[in-house]
Design a binder for these strands. Sequence first.
DNA 1: CCAAACTAAATTGTCGACAATCTAAAATCG
DNA 2: CGATTTTAGATTGTCGACAATTTAGTTTGG
Lengths: 229, 229
Amino acid sequence: MQIVSPLERSAITSSDRVLFEIQRAIVEGDIAAGCKISEPELARRFNVSRAPLREALARLERCHLIERIPNAGARVVTLSLEGLISLYQIREELEGLACRLAAEQMPDNEIDELRQLLDKHLETQRVREGESYYQEAGDLDFHYRIILGSKNQYLINMLCDELYYLVRMYRVQMGMNGPRVSRAFDEHKAIINAIANRDGELADLLMRRHIGASRKNIELRLQTEKETS
Amino acid sequence: MQIVSPLERSAITSSDRVLFEIQRAIVEGDIAAGCKISEPELARRFNVSRAPLREALARLERCHLIERIPNAGARVVTLSLEGLISLYQIREELEGLACRLAAEQMPDNEIDELRQLLDKHLETQRVREGESYYQEAGDLDFHYRIILGSKNQYLINMLCDELYYLVRMYRVQMGMNGPRVSRAFDEHKAIINAIANRDGELADLLMRRHIGASRKNIELRLQTEKETS
DNA sequence: CCAAACTAAATTGTCGACAATCTAAAATCG
DNA sequence: CGATTTTAGATTGTCGACAATTTAGTTTGG
């Protein structure tokens, strides 16, 4: 059984296709945060009828990218410091748990693969110092694999399907890059080492710190942006 | 602002109505676990077209009550010991977090109301010793209010909207009752005391233990059922 | 001039029918 | 006789149109 990389999915139905396109558009800001969503407009834009579009909207609501009010329509969510903190509080708990479980459940070969992935990312980072996109994708991939390693069906579903698009949206639109990128590598290394040693408690702790540091990094960024504006 | 009891909701659209009815039917076992779901049949049964029914199915999938496969249809989830453990592992983390946050965020009047609720439940339990339904509803109400007290939007959404119907389903269909009912009251009391004292760390710990004990209770029950059958 | 009531346009929710896909039973071939 | 292919039935996905509701603009009354 091959592990399907989480960032590439296959669209079966036309509802899937529309979902993926709108998801990407919202995450990357092509459809602005807080923007009202018009069903007829989007249906025309993506060449589908309203039925599959509404199915897609239901799934967008599920991953917290839009908010719907019955008989009134949908809006893209607005990003806020408060929301960011709420989101990362949950991530700390759930991904900490994921690490603890992965330390018990993750097979050796998956751990090896993850190590190789980290090495590969290190090279890419050296080459593309400063550019943050690849690091972000790599970071997400790292987190994804540990979550999958937990073998907890609900955990996987909640984090990978319901929460991570919003995480990406915060990262892309609020900008997570700069000097923290290199430090994140060391933290990833320490986490995978703890998992390889089957030390779930340590892996849990390290992941909580890692996510906490990431949160503080974005908070700081928001703070300085406010001051300079 | 009045706190709307989570167990009573108002159906705005006909899709809502169908959702609530099917939700109840699945949770209480009227539609059996593992059962295949036929869209035309359910549409006839609830006197709606397939459009609102499919909207309802999408939301049922969201709260993990059914599983859908594109072009192949939906099934009611099957309950398993493995699934139960996965579910409760997540509850321990998230409700522990909810307690910690509630200790910081919950206003005094909400804490008082929750205390009064516990006293009321105590009376009901004395009167109806042995019958577990009221305790269950009360227990859920208790957990609900603490989650709401956390004031974390995502936490509230994930627990109250996405996970708790499944929790109820496990409880109803696997039967959570017996001598643990009375002990749960004491645990609830201790938790609300910790929150009232603004001791988030303790409240967190106590909630994790409370949920862990609840899980072990059900596990034990499943074990003995297996042996006697 | 402001507020409330009404009206019209647009949007969302729902319906019935058609197209695409899957499932299972019947037929064919080795 | 068993395995594969074919075919018929049923189910899911999608479409366009209609009904119900909301929103914005206009009119009316104080």
